[in-house]
Computed example of a mutant assay.
Amino acid sequence: MSTDSNSRIGSSSIRSSRTGFVASGTGASRPSRPGQLDPAIADQLSGGMDPQQISEMSHVSAASLLDRVHHSTDPAIVKRVLTLVDREGVDVVAELWSDSDPDSLPGILWRLYMLRSWMRKDADGISRLWRLGEPTDTAASAIAGVDQAPEADDIIRTADSILSGAFTGDFAIALERAGAFCDVIARGIKTTIRDAQSRQLDGQEAKEVDAAQRTVNSLNQTARDFMRGASLWRRGRLE
């Protein structure tokens, strides 16, 4: 892929928190702009509930949700679980799960839901970042279940497939798919960073490069969280 085509990637923005992702709208294509990191997804919700109570509720709710779907053959239940954040709003789910440790079931489910939200809402920009990060099929393509040159609709289907697989299939495999996906998108953003750094940058462009690098760091950390979560699940230690 030529440098010129790389430069037209635009600014596929994600909002990243310490626990996951949610999408912002994909802006107009802007030449010479790397992927960017937007502010945190939401301010921490305040309230009078004891932190220990919140922790207990987060673990119980996550385990109950997963158990209910695993023991159900009703496709309507699966759909309601998939669209939990869409229906209830991110703040409602965040209040229970967003502060959970990544080595916990509620913490890893929170990351899966936020990854799905980001993938669905910024599918076009993410599809372009995938093509930059994975220009030829590799093991990551097979693990994540993404074709070499996905379009926006392919990204949306993959988002639903990863999350539904967590509830109806092998939970560890779903986490590994999510981890591989994050790795590839991080590589795509790195490509836009290298392209930007090959030119003389003004102050605003330099800030965008710094923000893009923070996005890469966040994606890489989330990928590690997913992979570690898969390992813990297989050992029966993700609770």
Rank of each mutant, 00 (worst) to 15 (best):
I155H: 00
D101L: 11
Q204E: 14
A144N: 03
S11D: 12
S61R: 05
S104M: 05
S32L: 05
S5R: 13
D122N: 15
S13I: 03
E56R: 08
E88K: 13
N6D: 12
G145P: 11
R224L: 08
E208G: 00
T222Y: 09
T3N: 09
A63R: 13
D154G: 08
P34V: 13
S2W: 05
Y113V: 11
A212Y: 00
L109W: 01
I143R: 07
Q53T: 15
L115N: 10
A42S: 12
D99E: 14
A223R: 04
A212D: 00
Q36C: 03
G169F: 06
A166Q: 05
S64A: 14
E205V: 07
G48A: 15
R18V: 13
K79W: 03
A206Y: 04
V78Y: 02
G47V: 05
V184S: 03
W110G: 01
R224Q: 10
S141W: 04
T191A: 12
Q213W: 03
I156T: 13
I41K: 04
K121G: 14
V216C: 08
G236V: 05
V69S: 02
I185W: 04
T73M: 11
S161I: 00
R194K: 14
F181L: 15
M49D: 12
R120L: 04
S17V: 07
L219P: 00
R87C: 06
M227Q: 14
G27A: 09
L238I: 10
A212H: 02
S127I: 02
G89F: 07
I126D: 02
I143P: 04
R80M: 15
D101H: 13
S13R: 11
Q197L: 11
F167H: 04
Q200D: 13
D202L: 02
L37G: 01
R116H: 10
R111Y: 03
T192Y: 02
W233V: 06
I14L: 14
T73E: 13
A63V: 02
G169V: 03
V85A: 07
L129E: 03
Q36H: 04
R15D: 09
E56M: 14
G10H: 00
F167M: 12
A178V: 00
A196C: 12
I108W: 01
R237Q: 15
E208V: 03
